[in-house]
């Protein structure tokens, strides 16, 4: 059945085309870069493992503990970090399988998880402030001297606490907006 409105809308919709040429050309370049990055990651992993084995062998032969530590970092920590990165990637929505509602529900769950993590950052800030308070209490009760070192440590800890608290508050605001946005999208998507 002919649909004049939809036919005209399609013509107007496709009038965006000429501008699109530049974007698709950029896409091909971006994709080449992505492939290069993926190849680079693989090459870096192979080099890291080879270097780790080399350091381990040299460390054993020369009896040098520093080389053994370097080997342990390359052979144990690096695979662990790679595994963690793989886990994070797996936690992304399954773009080809999920439905739009599922994607937003996934985003909402991620926002909630991040908000819980943010509360840890605030606890971290309070711990730093508590540490400063304890240090000064000990000093004022005659267990140490008020010297330059104490002032430097106090300034460093308070600056860290302020930065952690500021970041947590700023991030919390963003997450609140993201949560509200997700809820609005869910409402729109569930509309019949």
């Amino acid at each position: 059945m002919a649909d004049d409105f939809l036919d005209e809308a399609r013509r107007n919709w496709r009038a965006q085309d000429a501008e699109i040429e530049g974007v698709t050309a950029r896409l091909r370049r971006d994709l080449a870069f992505q492939r290069l990055m993926q190849g680079g990651e693989f090459v870096a992993a192979v080099i890291a493992v080879a270097a780790g084995v080399g350091f381990a062998w040299m460390g054993v032969v020369q009896g040098d503990a520093r080389l053994i530590v370097a080997a342990a970092v390359l052979l144990v920590l690096l695979p662990l970090l790679t595994w963690a990165a793989w886990r994070v990637r797996r936690q992304e929505p399954r773009w080809a399988e999920d439905e739009p509602v599922g994607v937003v529900e996934h985003m909402l769950a991620r926002v909630e998880a991040t908000r819980r993590l943010m509360s840890l950052a605030l606890w971290q800030a309070w711990t730093l402030v508590g540490t400063v308070a304890a240090m000064w209490a000990v000093t004022l009760f005659g267990r140490g001297a008020v010297d330059a070192g104490l002032w430097i440590v106090t300034a460093a800890l308070l600056a860290s606490a302020a930065a952690a608290a500021g970041w947590a508050v700023w991030r919390e605001r963003g997450l609140k907006r993201e949560r509200a946005n997700c809820e609005r999208l869910l409402e729109e998507l569930r509309r019949d």
């Binding site: 929505p93 439905e99 985003m107 963003g174 907006r177 946005n181």
Partner: peptide, 12 residues
């Protein structure tokens, strides 16, 4: 799906 997640990440 990718576009929906993009919009969800936008504050406004």
């Amino acid at each position: 799906n990718r576009a929906v997640s993009h919009v969800a990440r936008q504050a406004a």
